[in-house]
């Protein structure tokens, strides 16, 4: 195809599935090691973090909740980038990346919802409130499930990937609109406290464990994503071999 030349050279070289398998096989042990190290540090710091004077020990849930919610959004962004790769460069590895990311993103979103719910029970006295942020994350969760279902519903990987990519991008464009309208609909959640123009309002003794946990979760995501991509590549190879086997049996007679 002529339009492959539009993509940057290093990406094209990396984006050969066999090359990806080889490279990722070499990176994965290191990635695992980094993930485990970050988690060890993050967990030690989290358990030693002081209790909040208002929220008590429940504040510790935040060390899982916030990174999970952050990954839920980052994963979708990564899928959007992959979707562009699918639609613009028609690259099979971009298909694989988007497909592999969706279930991981859904799990992290679910984790964010569950931990939020566990936190909300003592704070708000109920498992769930329909406040703007929770609701946005819940809508994101539904979008993940829809994308997974769409991808599973089609046999032919290339076609499934293109359809999913269109939906991912439409969803991506829609996310600010959803966020805005849900905010309009209801505001009850406390305002953001880490990302603010006038600097974080959160106390450093809580902020540092949180940041380390965020790094650990991000590393975990990339590790899982890489493994899922490898699985998906192998799954497609198995599928191709089965098709070839079916043809061989017919012609060999």
């Amino acid at each position: 195809m002529s339009d492959v030349s539009i993509s940057p050279g290093w990406l094209t070289r990396l984006a050969n599935p066999s090359r990806f398998l080889e490279l990722s096989g070499r990176i994965l042990p290191w990635l695992w090691a980094a993930t485990l190290a970050a988690f060890a540090a993050g967990l030690v710091m989290s358990f030693n973090a002081p209790e909040d004077y208002q929220q008590g020990i429940t504040v510790s849930i935040m060390f899982i909740h916030v990174p999970a919610a952050w990954l839920a959004m980052m994963c979708y962004s990564l899928m959007a980038v992959s979707a562009i790769g699918t639609l613009v460069w028609r690259h099979p590895l971009a298909d694989v990346s988007a497909k592999a990311a969706a279930p991981i993103g859904a799990v992290f979103t679910f984790l964010a919802l569950v931990t939020g719910s566990l936190w909300g029970r003592p704070m708000w006295g109920t498992w769930w409130v329909w406040d703007a942020r929770l609701t946005s994350v819940f809508v994101l969760f539904l979008m993940y499930l829809g994308l997974i279902a769409l991808n599973r519903a089609m046999d032919e990987p290339g076609r499934a990937a293109r359809a999913t990519a269109v939906l991912i991008l439409v969803g991506f464009v829609n996310i600010p609109i959803i966020k805005f309208s849900v905010n309009w609909w209801n505001t009850l959640h406390q305002p953001a406290s880490v990302m603010r123009l006038d600097g974080p309002t959160i106390h450093p003794s809580l902020l540092y464990p949180l940041l380390v946990m965020a790094v650990a979760f991000t590393l975990l995501f990339f590790t899982l994503h890489m493994m899922a991509m490898r699985n998906e590549i192998w799954r497609r190879r198995v599928q191709t071999m089965r098709h070839r086997a079916a043809r061989a049996i017919g012609s060999g007679q």
Partner: peptide
């Protein structure tokens, strides 16, 4: 029917004649 070894494949993978 001369298709030994095809049993484990999904039916959808086969050609029209198979």
């Amino acid at each position: 029917v001369g298709l030994s070894g095809v049993g484990h494949l999904p039916f959808g993978y086969l050609s029209a004649g198979q």
